[in-house]
Design a protein around this nucleic acid. Structure first.
Lengths: 233, 233
DNA sequence: ATCACAAAGTGTATTTTTTACACTTATTAT
DNA sequence: ATAATAAGTGTAAAAAATACACTTTGTGAT
């Protein structure tokens, strides 16, 4: 059934893939999106969604394509994480993987399993199954990066809806940093950065004082980073 | 003269390379190590030392091999920087490059040009020639990373000899961060981290008060990072 | 309509960290 | 002996981080 192989080179080449570490947030805890593999190797095991880089796409484009193809997620925060190149990281042959990490508002997307994928499911970060390939290492690297990054770049928003309350945002920071944060100090600090805009809207149908909605002011943030200003939480 | 191509695959594959951004320090300013290319493309142009990843080496190992082969440098601080995958970044064919950055005590090594390389030379960061491929982009990325990193990880040492004075170390920080630092505040801070060990040795033959030598205490640093402690300059 | 409940929202005092700043000391060359 | 040079050192003021508790507001139950 297989056709003759067709692409030949003077030197042997590793195969090149990308894998995506996708974080979501569920009000209380951080979640990770995994897919169940349809084929060998690691058939029926959980893995990060990944795939091979095409000749006409950058690795960034590849990561975004895979995100969409294998999980249905698109237009989210994606950033290059690390390139993993251990010689035996794939049992089939030499595959080098450029990993990416994504931050997703998990309620925005209906998960849809795609090509080579049986299903896509959210898992608790604290309770992950054993993963295929070296994907556990990738996840560990991604969590470290996320922790480091969240403290000096306002990316917490990316895990929430367009509009959110400060308490929700604080929850994101607490989940990522794995520590309690003082409410008053958090609000003082996050508002002082100047990238949050209070909306003319409050929560509805809650059996308590309704919280104010905020949104992320991308323009203000761009101006800040261009001036080279950092903040710290 | 060329033999028949020998390695064939079912799907086309990009070629995979690494390139090294190598920083040195010369008492006053940051330097970058460039090599002059012996062959096309970009023959006789300055470029970062780079080369193709072999099937039996990780990209880290590849970067270290290239460093040694093309410049004579070995056993230095090397860290993965970023993977560049623009489709036309190499005029010959699709090549994806995993870049690394290295910090070197430039006086420790006799530069030696190697394979495919006419010469290796240190350049002022502020006065670089036009570089081959997308190497200017790599350098820009590396400088940003270095600036960010130096403030929360003690890597300034890597640009100096085994033993160094606090004034030399301050010079490294000033060169990287491109700003003047107050001498007393710098000393207070850098010593408070607890990774510098005062040696029983001073400068000799200087027409002024001789400065105390210090060395970097790797053991103390390891303990600190394991406890997850960061510092900031 | 009143009350109980729940989370939103808010200010200040204390501690810690960062910053700004100038003179004395040690060594060599003249 | 003296001049020249960079090393080395402490303190006060300002800014930032931290610790901490009560009032407000909207809903649901009675």
């Amino acid at each position: 059934m297989k056709e003759k192989k067709r692409y030949s080179y003077e030197h042997p080449r590793p195969s090149l893939a990308t894998d995506c570490v996708i974080f979501g947030f569920d009000g209380g805890t951080l979640k990770l999106l995994l897919t169940e593999r349809e084929k060998e190797p690691f058939k029926n095991k959980w893995a990060l969604p990944g795939g091979f880089v095409q000749m006409d796409e950058t690795t960034e484009a590849c990561a975004e394509r895979i995100l969409k193809e294998k999980t249905g997620i698109k237009n989210v925060f994606v950033e290059q994480l690390f390139t993993f190149s251990d010689i035996d990281r794939d049992p089939r042959e030499r595959v080098i993987s450029v990993s990416y990490f994504a931050l997703v508002n998990k309620h925005q997307f209906e998960l849809s399993a795609g090509r080579d994928t049986l299903k896509a499911e959210w898992f608790e970060i604290a309770d992950l199954p054993k993963l295929a390939f070296d994907h556990s290492k990738m996840v560990k690297t991604a969590i470290e990066r996320l922790k480091g990054k969240v403290s000096y770049q306002p990316i917490g928003f990316e895990l929430l809806a367009e509009k959110f309350t400060l308490t929700q945002l604080q929850g994101v920071y607490e989940a990522i940093l794995e520590k309690q944060i003082d409410k008053r100090n958090f609000r003082k600090k996050i508002l002082s950065i100047g990238v949050l805009r209070a909306l003319d809207e409050k929560e509805k149908n809650v059996a308590r004082k309704a919280a104010q909605y905020f949104s992320f002011d991308k323009k203000a943030y761009k101006e800040l980073t261009q001036k080279g200003i950092y903040f710290e939480i």
